Computed example of a mutant assay.
Amino acid sequence: MNTQTRLPVIPSGTPAKASRSLSAACLTHALHDGYTDALYVFLPVWQAQFGLSYAGLAVIRALYSGTMGGLQIPADRALRNWSPRAALMLSTALALAGLLLMALPLGMIGLCAGLVLAGIGSSIQHPRSSMLVTETYGANSRRPLGIYNFSGDLGKALLPALVAVLLPVIDWQAVMVLMAALGILLIMALARLAPSTPMQAQRAATRAPGRAQDGRGFAILATVGALDTATRMGYLLFLPFLIQGRGGDSPTIGVALALLFIGGAFGKFTFGWLGERIGVVRCVMLAECATALLIAATLVTPLLPTLLLLPVLGIVLNGTSSVLYGTVPELSKGDTGRAFAVFYTCVIGSGGIAPILFGAIADLSSRATALLLTVLTALAVVPLVSTLRPYLQTSPTSR
């Protein structure tokens, strides 16, 4: 191997500092992703309180996800010279302030404004946390990025389950306040764990080695990520109502989401390992085919079999993201921070728009029709990802 193209394993300092940086990124990712997916548990409550349709619920949630996705690139650009500590603390402070605003007795206006403010906060987290991991581990960042993505699924599994347990006991505004309190704890942890100085000195070292890319490979990767996210978010929009329609109550909905996300967390490890052995393209194709099959199965199974299928569905539904995120530095054309911001813009933007479209289709036809369209979206990834092969490095683990 040409040693001149190799990057240092930990360009930012000692293994202890690298571990603290990774912990800071993982804790931030876990809480912010927990915030994001806990919103699904509130959907039936908001539908009953505000009289919203499926499309209306999707629009309400898109205020959060659309803001979070649309501001990825501006947030990366504006905070590029900030220290990771300052950027992640600001991100969390804005997110918890949004939750507190939602908890105030301001009706629909307060709910919408709070979702936008929380979305602004979370828009900072993704590119800054991902870049912190990439800058810390250099060329060896694929596996730490997998750990980072796994931490997000832990948050997705734990916080929605906690919210589902609390909602039957206290009102939803009080639950929002408790979620905000977790953000305060995170800020205290970040003050000790996250680096306090900008990492600009290492930015040049994170440029991906190898041949220059013309941008088409990255465009394909971003489109694959967008379709993969559209499938996931479309299914998540209807899952609470799918469970509710089969006799499940609020705690059961929380259990269903937790089972799905626990499977997703396991999927990050499974597909991270699988991607290294069979390649990115084969791994994604396998996952999308299995996703389509399992989503279709949950349309016809009773409540208990559906719950049993959800962890398996979670493995393939969420597992691909670890493979896709780990490929971003390889196709980044050198500016990894901007590449992550663009990639997150695409996938989060898709996650905001797709549920609106699926929700409108459900309102005009049926929930089953909309869910079948999520199946077709997953299958559409298969021929698209096959065109990614020429743009990946020549190692078999990339393909």
Rank of each mutant, 00 (worst) to 15 (best):
S395G: 13
A230P: 11
L364M: 13
L71R: 06
D363N: 12
L88V: 10
L71N: 06
R203H: 12
F50I: 02
A118R: 01
I184G: 15
L242S: 14
I10D: 04
L357N: 05
G69M: 01
A87P: 09
G254E: 03
R207L: 06
R61H: 14
V45L: 14
Q72V: 03
A258Y: 01
A256D: 10
G352D: 02
P105G: 09
L22M: 09
P127H: 00
S365K: 12
A297N: 06
G349R: 00
C26S: 15
L294P: 08
V312R: 02
R20P: 00
L274T: 11
V347Q: 12
L299H: 08
V316M: 04
A48F: 00
F269D: 06
I10E: 11
R61Y: 07
L236P: 12
G234E: 03
L274I: 10
R85H: 13
L324K: 01
I73E: 04
A368D: 12
S386E: 07
P355I: 04
G264L: 03
L304T: 07
Q200H: 11
A360G: 10
L317K: 08
W273N: 11
L237K: 09
S130C: 02
L182T: 14
L79Q: 06
P84Y: 00
R143H: 06
A205V: 08
Q72M: 13
R192S: 14
W46G: 11
G66P: 07
Y325K: 06
F269N: 11
E135A: 15
G66M: 05
L392M: 08
I348E: 09
W172K: 11
P160S: 07
L167T: 06
T28D: 05
T206Q: 12
G119V: 01
I348C: 00
A194S: 09
L293Q: 04
L167P: 11
L259H: 05
H32V: 14
T270C: 14
F42G: 12
P44I: 02
L90I: 05
P251I: 02
L299E: 06
D214L: 01
A48Q: 12
Y35D: 10
G138N: 01
N318S: 13
V381A: 02
P195H: 13
V177P: 07
D153C: 13
T3P: 00
L260M: 14
F261I: 04
S91C: 13
A75F: 01
G279R: 04
R389K: 15
L154M: 15
N2H: 12
S196A: 15
P251R: 01
K17T: 09
I253H: 04
S83Q: 08
T345S: 15
Q4G: 11
